[in-house]
Design a protein around this nucleic acid. Structure first.
Length: 275
DNA sequence: CGTGCTGTTGCTAG
DNA sequence: ACTAGCAACAGCAC
């Protein structure tokens, strides 16, 4: 269940422990992910190249490699990257395996196979089909009360659904959408266009604060999220609305309610989050 | 043993 | 143009 904070933690670990090292070989053990892996491109653009930088865009990881190539990894719902000793036997669902210098191995593990791995020339990044349509980075200055206000003017969606649309604000997942709306005291069913500037200010701040706090706690582990070294995130015990149906609201003790929106569970306090 | 739920995203049908 | 619904898959709680 990697959302943005979980992905950001993995990025930081990659920046610390993989950047500067070389991808010696790549093995694809199963090519059918959300889209079939382009094995040809992957082998051709990653083998023998040193990793120069680890970046994140929304929930996508980008490893810039020597020779103007970029490796793209999305973890879907159940994906993981494991940095392990090369001698460790392959686990079930280890679909792609990079061997690194120093007898280590970077493995892409994804039981549900909703993830994505691709390699492309770095100069094509802006044209990449899955990256080109992404909206504003929530932790950057481009997401502001003003930009949020401007974007919501034309949307008839409920604000919770709006937040999940990556073409507007990128990388807000189901957990953090509920948490941010709770923090901003906004009802998840409120039509986006009805938010006034003050509400957009609260929501913008809530998104940034919630994501930053989750990053600081290593992310949220609901079931099977693990970081690069198999550690769990700690933020689940700080969740104030998500998954807490019937439990007392941490602000007013009213029972947390839940409903389904666009096929996803939404949690909110019916008393603090008025329409 | 089912049955129903789960973190994502992109395609399709309306 | 914009939105809801579903499909891709495995695992787990009940």
């Amino acid at each position: 269940m990697p959302e943005l904070p979980e992905v950001e933690n993995i990025r930081r670990a990659l920046a610390r422990d993989v950047v500067g090292h070389t991808l010696l070989t790549v093995e694809v053990h199963r090519e059918k992910l959300r889209k079939p892996i382009d094995k040809e491109a992957l082998v051709h653009l990653t083998t023998g190249r040193r990793v120069l930088a680890a970046r994140r865009r929304a929930k996508y990881l980008l490893l810039d490699l020597e020779g103007e190539a970029t490796l793209l990894v999305h973890l879907g719902m159940s994906g993981r990257l494991d940095l392990v000793a090369a001698s460790l036997p392959l686990a079930k669902h280890d679909h792609v395996c990079f061997s690194l210098d120093g007898e280590r191995s970077l493995r892409y593990h994804d039981p549900r196979r909703f993830g994505l791995i691709d390699a492309f020339p770095t100069r094509d990044e802006a044209r990449h089909p899955t990256l080109r349509e992404l909206g504003l980075e929530p932790l950057s200055a481009e997401l502001s009360a003003a930009s949020l206000f401007a974007m919501t003017r034309t949307s008839h969606k409920p604000i919770k659904t709006f937040l999940l649309d990556g073409k507007r604000v990128a990388g807000i997942g189901n957990i953090y959408a509920s948490e941010a709306l709770f923090a901003a005291r906004l009802h998840p069913l409120a039509a986006a266009a009805t938010l006034d500037l003050a509400a957009c200010r609260r929501l913008c701040r809530a998104l940034k604060v919630t994501l930053e706090r989750a990053i600081a706690h290593g992310g949220t582990t609901l079931r099977d999220f693990r970081d690069l070294y198999g550690a769990r995130g700690d933020f689940a015990r700080h969740l104030r609305a998500y998954g807490r149906t019937g439990a007392p609201c941490p602000r007013c003790k009213t029972a947390i309610a839940s409903l389904t929106q666009a096929g996803r569970s939404t949690y909110f306090c019916p008393s603090c989050q008025r329409r």
